[in-house]
């Protein structure tokens, strides 16, 4: 818990939100059917979330305190939390239950928010800017809103000074330095830091039955069943379809100079050059 630095105690309780995602870099498209080939695609910690963990760990290292990693997902998301412990998190909570499944960002933010409340006081929630499977970048702000704390989105640098969060974040046309009261929520981008590799003894210890990972369901966090999972999700998927990739491709051939001339010709026909 954060206390005034002037009192000589300045430990930070940091909560890091972690999502396990399929490694989309490995997802390929079947060239014949145009559908996703998801078989055998490994699950990884969402890349931005690794930077969130690193940011949380560095804050703890300079201030003392605790880092707790929280993830909602299927039971195998335990792997992501083990990795978080391997990197140095003090404890982890896996929110897993059939009732949590099918959640959109609203239901997810409720679930994560409830869990954070259940964990007690916190000074900072750190999350990755966005997940590579959903790309919504909505969870951070929605959790911040649920917890009624200010947010710093897309932070590239952060430090805690005099009981306040000082951060820099990227903007469309510059870098913005902000100051923000604690508790707060921060999302970080990959420019924020270079995540450490797990420390193998800690990583292996995370497989012990007594590793500090709690598994919580809706009752454990006092969640209203109507507000979680598919039931608590106002948005529904009506349909999915693969965008038509097939275009008429014109292949240029010949020597580089010939191709270049042909290309200029085509660009001119299309009024592009």
């Amino acid at each position: 818990m954060y206390r005034d630095a002037r009192l000589g105690v300045a430990e930070l309780d940091v909560i890091v939100l972690v999502k396990q995602v399929p490694n989309t870099a490995e997802v390929k498209i079947d060239p014949r059917t145009g559908t996703l080939m998801r078989e055998g695609v490994e699950s990884i910690i969402n890349p931005d979330d690794l930077h969130a963990l690193e940011a949380g760990l560095r804050l703890r290292e300079s201030h003392g305190g605790r880092v707790t990693a929280v993830s909602m997902g299927p039971p195998q998301a335990m792997d992501a939390l083990r990795e978080a412990l391997g990197m140095g998190a003090d404890a982890a909570v896996l929110l897993t239950d059939r009732a949590f499944a099918g959640a959109d960002t609203l239901a997810t933010s409720y679930t994560l928010g409830k869990c954070i409340r259940k964990l007690g006081r916190f000074d900072l929630v750190v999350a990755g800017h966005q997940a590579i499977d959903g790309d919504t970048a909505q969870i951070g702000p929605q959790v911040a809103e649920y917890l009624d704390v200010p947010q710093v989105i897309r932070a590239t640098r952060l430090e805690v000074r005099d009981g306040e969060l000082h951060a820099e974040r990227t903007h469309e046309d510059g870098v913005e330095a902000v100051r923000c009261a604690l508790p707060a929520l921060v999302t970080v981008t990959r420019e924020a830091n270079k995540p450490r590799y797990p420390y193998i003894p800690r990583l292996m210890a995370a497989f012990d039955p007594n590793a500090p990972i709690k598994t919580w369901g809706p009752k454990d966090i006092g969640a209203d069943e109507r507000l979680i999972g598919l039931k608590g999700s106002p948005t529904q998927v009506q349909k999915t379809f693969t965008p038509k990739l097939e275009k008429k491709v014109e292949k240029l051939s010949g020597q580089p100079a010939e191709m270049a001339r042909a290309l200029v010709g085509r660009l001119k026909e299309r009024r592009l050059a």
Partner: peptide, 19 residues
């Protein structure tokens, strides 16, 4: 060493991974 590789075979009590 920073990843704790060298102690991988040694017991947990000694800071290793008991691999």
């Amino acid at each position: 060493a920073g990843m704790g590789l060298y102690s991988i075979r040694y017991p947990k009590e000694a800071g290793g991974s008991a691999a």
